[in-house]
Simulated assay, not measured.
Amino acid sequence: MEKDTLYKFFAGLASDSEKIAIKSWLEEDAANQQVLLKERAFYDAIMLADEKLCIEETRPTSGFRILMKRSVKWAAVLLLAFISSYMLLEIQYRTSEAADNTVIVPAGQRVNLFLSDGTKVCLNSGSTFTYPSSFTNNIRNVSLDGEAYFEVAANEQKPFVVHTHICDVEVTGTKFNVEAYEDENSFSAALMEGKIKVRDNAEPSNTVRLNPAHKVNFAQGKMLVSDISDYDVYRWKEGLICFKDLGFVELMKRVEKYYGVKTFIENPSLPEHSFSGKFRVSDGIDNLLRVLQKEVGYTYTYSEDGNVIYIK
């Protein structure tokens, strides 16, 4: 299926014959469903990004840019309904402007967007972010699985709440970073300006309030507050991987997150080493691995599909 046809469909510009062709294509092979989901996630990320900011390493075609400009009003919707029912999808698209938007950020990329209240959000690689088209309730609720930097528009009457799988973060207007990848079962929040309140979802009475230059980490059922000793780690929003005295195993976990690969460390001496440095994500994973090779001797190979790296 041509990508231009899929993009026209996502934008609500596909003809009836093109819609029927997409439906037939989906029914031909279950693998096509995954292709559709992947292209939809990419389309949503591009369409919702601020036009003044770029998405790393990916450039849409000029025709796609035209489609973006003509279809800004269309919000993201879940595509599982398409797989199960063509008619249900049509209904969802007609009502999508009132539904929540979901942005899924591919590996190695970042997405910047502005919410309806003026809040700026920068999403890191591998993140999923859900938010409403407009904040009509007394609380501005959004959901995050991944990492994001927020610059929340001030509104004392409408608190802004970031829901994650472990903790909720409540603010009225401030700048802060939240990292909460569900598959890693981790949570941390760092405050740059203003004040935030962090609440344990399992124990709502377990609450902490942060002041600027402080961060909180959730570990073993407790929230541990400490000073921010290194602001470079939050420069991911600039497309940088920054680390200081970080063990090789932990560093490879970051590599996996940023580049969407799996690493296997077969060299027993590597976990004993720690590293400090800064790398630009757009320079690629090979550049990072080769620079590290100069400090510690190892070799690495890829699997046939390129999704696994064996480090020896």
Rank of each mutant, 00 (worst) to 15 (best):
A180I: 00
S276Q: 13
P60A: 03
Y302A: 03
Q109D: 12
T301A: 10
E250M: 02
A190T: 04
Q109I: 00
L13T: 14
R254A: 00
V249F: 04
E90D: 10
W74P: 02
L123C: 10
T172Q: 11
E90Y: 00
L89E: 00
Y310L: 04
T263W: 07
Y258S: 05
Y259A: 06
S133R: 03
F279A: 09
V261Q: 03
F264C: 08
G221H: 11
P60C: 06
Q34G: 15
K222I: 06
A98P: 13
L67M: 12
I228P: 02
Y300R: 04
F218E: 08
E18M: 10
E97Q: 08
D100W: 10
K8M: 05
I22V: 12
I309Q: 03
V121F: 03
S84V: 01
D44Y: 07
F248I: 14
P212L: 06
V169H: 01
A180T: 00
R65I: 00
E51F: 13
G247C: 01
E256P: 06
V308T: 14
M1P: 03
T5S: 09
V261I: 02
V281R: 05
K158T: 01
E56G: 08
S143C: 12
Y302E: 08
N124S: 11
V111L: 13
Q293K: 09
K52R: 11
K73M: 13
A99N: 13
S282H: 11
R94H: 09
F9Y: 04
C54E: 14
A30T: 07
A190M: 02
R209C: 15
G12L: 05
Y258K: 06
A98R: 13
K197C: 09
C54V: 12
L89T: 00
V103Q: 00
Q109C: 13
S15C: 11
S133Q: 02
A45H: 06
Y181N: 12
S71W: 05
S205T: 15
D286H: 04
G277P: 10
E151I: 11
E156G: 10
N287T: 14
E51Y: 15
M1R: 02
A98C: 07
K312S: 02
E250G: 09
V35R: 07
I285A: 03
N137Y: 09
I66N: 14
